[in-house]
Design a protein around this nucleic acid. Sequence first.
DNA 1: CGGAAGATCCACT
DNA 2: GTGGATCTTCCGA
Length: 210
Amino acid sequence: MTKARAGELSVLPRSFYRRPADKVAPALLGRYIVRREAGARLILRIVETEAYLGAGDPASHAWGGRRTARTSALFRPGGCAYVYLVYGLHHMLNVVTESEEEGSAVLIRAGEPVAGERAMLRNRGLVEPIVGGALAGGPGRLCQALGIDLDDNRSWLDGESLRICRGRPSSPSRIVAAPRVGVDYAGEAASWALRFVERENPNVSRPRPW
DNA sequence: CGGAAGATCCACT
DNA sequence: GTGGATCTTCCGA
C-alpha cells in the first residue's frame, strides 16, 4: 500500500467530468476516491472503469431517453454521483459526465487500497486480511468497502464525505480497453470497448482483459 | 397488478 | 462452471 502524497489529494474540479464518458473513463484511472467515515479516511486508487454513453447506448440506463425515478441522478450535471442497487444486494457507484440531461456516466468498477484498509475490511465483513485484489475489486465490493449506498446518490463528488482527487493517473501505455462486463442484453453495444483497466493490476475484476 | 430481469458476488461441485 | 441470494424497478396486460 503506497502512501498518498499531498498533491495527490487535491480534489478534481467539476469541469473534469464535463466531457464525453468515454474520455472521462480512462482519465479516471489512477485517481483517488477519498471517503470520510467517522473521522477515518479511506482511499482507493481507481484501476477499472466503464463508460455508459447515455440515450444512444443500449447498455445505459438512459437508453432511448428513458428516465425514471431511480435513474434521475443520472441526468444531473457532470461531477455528481449516481448510485443504484442491483440484484437487490449490490450498490454501484457511477460518476455523471457531460452536462445535465445527457444521461452519460462512468461506472467505477475496482480500486486498489491506499489508506484505511482496516476500515474497508470491516465494512466488507471480513476479519482476515484479504487475498490479492478482492477487497475492492468489483463494483459491488468497492461500494461495500467504502460504505457507499443510496445515501450517496445525487451527491457532488467534491464534498467532505466523498470526493475524487488527482491521485497518480495511469500512464496511457498501461491502459487496456475491452468490452463491458455484464451487458449481454445490449446487443451489438455489448462489444463496444468502453471498459478501461490498468494492465496487470491485481485489483482488476474478472474477466481480466490482458 | 404480476412477472421478469438485473452494469454482482459467493459458495459449492 | 453453475446456481442461489434478494428486492427494486419497469413494462406489459
